[in-house]
Amino acid sequence: MFDLAEKESWYKFIKNAENQDIYFTPEYFEIYERNGEGKAKLFVYDNGKDFVYYPFLLRNLHNLTILKEISSKYRELYDITTPYGYGGPITSAKEEAIKKKIFIEFEEIFESYCLRENIITEFVRFHPLILNHQDYKHIESTLNRHTIYIDLSLDSEEIWANYDNKNRNRLRKAQANNYFTMVHRSPSDLEDFLRLYYKTMDKKNAYEYYYFQRDFFENSAELLKDHLELIEVVMDDKVIMSCFFMHYGDFIHYHLLGSDEDYLHFSPNNSLIHYVVEWGKAKGKKALHLGGGYTGDIDTLYRFKKRFNKYGDLPFYIGKKIHNQAIYDELVKDLPVPDNYFPLYRHPDLATPILSNNK
């Protein structure tokens, strides 16, 4: 087991993993540890030939006010989760038979660890580009929604052909009229981004969680360094859209965005994504991952992203596991919330604050 004081150990394994991405780096986890969402931990099962690499956030249940009375009966109780984005376990094994065998070994060892350490539940946001839900069988996986990606290994003409007609027409109009200039900013140059981001969150009536504070973005810029790109769309000398993209290994991720709604009828987001397609191809990247919709496969955001690749659907799975059913049942008994959230004791309607001193 490793923590953030042992980053070199994280990278010793990352560089030999079959799939590499920003979401598995210790720096990405440190952003969320600093944000008070848990302690970054890395569990590695190594059989001498291959390994399974599983980073997660370890959260102390004693910090949840609603559980104080029950949890005080026990020694420390924990749960584990993937931070915002994607994750789950990955491996160095390439052949399917070897991969299956090492995951069986890993799952047995990891289950023993969870029971020993009083980890009550586990929640995983699996990685749509890696499809690692197919490997981790010891957890209940369900399809949450689809996400969209653009295959940057294709020729530019093929990528363009996979855009829908409406998207291509908007891009042609923007290019013909020279509407936009794309500007790369230092990720620490946050003024325009924050102004637009918070306006966008207000417009979308976003959950409180997504109102990340300034230090969240400052930490992202500090920790992700050259793997974080801040690109702004400028029109009439005004920044009308600002977006963070993360890139690592073969992948680019459309991360967090703010926009000025007064200019959205010019379709700046279409031009921004098309620009990043060309930029990513020039950098030798293999995929631009756009993510999914706000709520699923029918909302406006999903339909917008789908315009960039009619063949680009990827399944996004989440995993849920209760490691200690008896204690879990005790924790959730009589909670005044609908039983549609996991783990139920972290339902947002309970208004249980995340404290920054998780142990």
Rank of each mutant, 00 (worst) to 15 (best):
N167C: 15
F13L: 11
F123K: 09
E261C: 07
E158D: 15
E229I: 11
E229V: 11
N269K: 09
Y149A: 13
V337T: 07
P268D: 06
H323Q: 10
K203V: 02
A5H: 13
K137D: 05
G293T: 02
R145E: 05
V233D: 03
D21H: 09
D215C: 07
T121I: 06
P83C: 08
I240T: 08
Y317S: 00
A40P: 00
D339I: 11
H255N: 11
R75N: 15
S259F: 11
F193D: 00
D236S: 14
E117N: 14
S220T: 08
F251T: 07
Q20S: 09
S92D: 05
K49F: 12
K7D: 05
S186E: 14
N269V: 09
Y198C: 06
T81V: 13
K68T: 12
L301V: 08
Y197H: 10
L190G: 06
E140G: 08
L196R: 06
L67A: 05
L143V: 06
V332A: 03
Q175A: 15
Y341H: 09
K310V: 15
K68E: 14
K238N: 10
G258R: 02
N324I: 13
C243D: 04
K286N: 14
F180C: 04
F51D: 05
G296T: 02
D189G: 07
I139L: 11
N63P: 00
L57W: 01
T142L: 11
